[in-house]
Amino acid sequence: MTNLERWVDALVDEYDLDPEVVDIGAVLDLARDAAHGVERPAAPLTTFIAGYVAGMAAGEGADHPIEDVLARATELALAWTAEPELPGTETPGA
Rank of each mutant, 00 (worst) to 15 (best):
D68G: 01
I24A: 08
A34S: 13
D18A: 12
P87Q: 09
E20S: 15
I49Y: 14
V69P: 02
E14P: 07
D68K: 02
M1F: 08
P87M: 05
E85K: 06
G88N: 02
R32H: 14
L76I: 12
L28T: 13
E14T: 15
A31N: 11
L70P: 06
P87C: 08
E83H: 06
M56P: 01
R32I: 07
Y52M: 09
T89R: 08
V22T: 10
L45N: 01
A43R: 03
L86K: 01
W80K: 03
V12C: 14
L78Y: 02
N3H: 06
A10I: 03
L11G: 10
G51S: 04
D9P: 07
D16S: 15
W7I: 09
L78H: 11
G25C: 11
A35N: 06
G37Y: 12
G59E: 14
A31T: 11
D9L: 13
A73W: 01
A35K: 04
D13E: 14
P65G: 09
D23Y: 09
A58G: 11
L4F: 07
Y52K: 09
E85C: 00
G59K: 11
L11H: 08
A57D: 10
E14G: 12
E83V: 10
V69N: 04
I49V: 15
V69I: 13
V27K: 05
D16P: 01
E83P: 00
D16R: 14
L86M: 14
G25N: 15
V69D: 00
P44K: 07
P41S: 14
L30R: 04
A43P: 01
P41N: 15
G88R: 07
T47G: 09
D63E: 14
A35P: 05
E39D: 15
L76Y: 11
A31Q: 13
A73G: 06
V12E: 05
A82P: 13
G93D: 04
A42N: 02
P84I: 07
I66V: 06
L76G: 00
D33N: 13
V8F: 10
A62S: 04
W7P: 00
G55A: 13
P65T: 08
A82C: 09
A26E: 12
I66Y: 02
R72T: 02
W80H: 14
T2M: 02
V38S: 00
T46L: 05
D13P: 04
I66D: 02
V8I: 07
I66E: 02
I49D: 02
A43F: 00
A10Q: 12
V27P: 08
V12N: 07
H64A: 09
A62D: 01
P19Y: 10
A50V: 06
A43Q: 00
A54H: 00
E83R: 13
A73R: 00
E83F: 05
T81K: 12
G25Q: 12
A35M: 07
M56Y: 07
G51D: 03
L4P: 03
H64F: 10
A10G: 10
L70G: 10
I24V: 13
D68V: 04
A54T: 05
E14W: 14
R40S: 14
A71C: 07
T2E: 02
E60F: 07
